[in-house]
Amino acid sequence: MTHRRRRAARGTSGRNFPWGDQKTAAKCNVREAGVEGTASVSRYHSGVSPYGVYDMVGNVWEWLSTQTTPGRYELRGSAFTSPLFRGAPAVPNDANDANDTMHDDDTGFRCVATPEQMTPRRR
């Protein structure tokens, strides 16, 4: 897990979940929440990380650029199909990493850029 993703997901204190150390399915879109599909990013305000990042747990697995083996990539964060215990940001999805050709309804990715990489928007 990259240093930036770890900080975005767990804060500087290394908490177990973005909202703290308490397992709480009501703060994310996991199996126990009963949504049975993806939800809008802004649905779980109480599950946002200390850096304002939504859905670091649940909704869809995040496909990372970290290769586990050639052609396979690490997944983190869990999905709406996953039980809450699989969603702790520090726990990798060892059972299911992503391959180059995977098409799955519970896996996605997050576009990330540093402030220096952002182009100011013209108004």
Rank of each mutant, 00 (worst) to 15 (best):
Y51E: 15
R10M: 15
T66H: 07
R123G: 00
V57L: 11
L84P: 14
G87E: 07
E116V: 05
G11K: 07
N16W: 03
K23F: 05
T12H: 07
T69E: 06
G47K: 14
F17M: 10
T66G: 02
M56E: 09
F17H: 09
H3I: 10
M56L: 14
Y44E: 01
A95L: 11
L75Y: 00
V48H: 00
R121V: 14
L84T: 03
T66Q: 12
R4P: 05
F109R: 05
A39L: 01
G77H: 01
P89H: 03
T68W: 01
F80S: 06
E116R: 05
T2D: 15
P115C: 06
D94P: 02
V57G: 12
D94W: 09
P92H: 01
N96L: 11
G108Q: 06
K23I: 08
A26K: 15
P115R: 03
W61H: 07
S78N: 07
V30I: 07
L84F: 02
P89C: 09
D105R: 09
G87R: 05
V57P: 10
E36L: 11
V41M: 09
Y54A: 15
V35E: 09
W19Q: 13
G58S: 09
S65T: 14
R123P: 06
V41C: 09
D106L: 03
P70M: 12
W63C: 06
A95E: 13
M56G: 08
P89D: 08
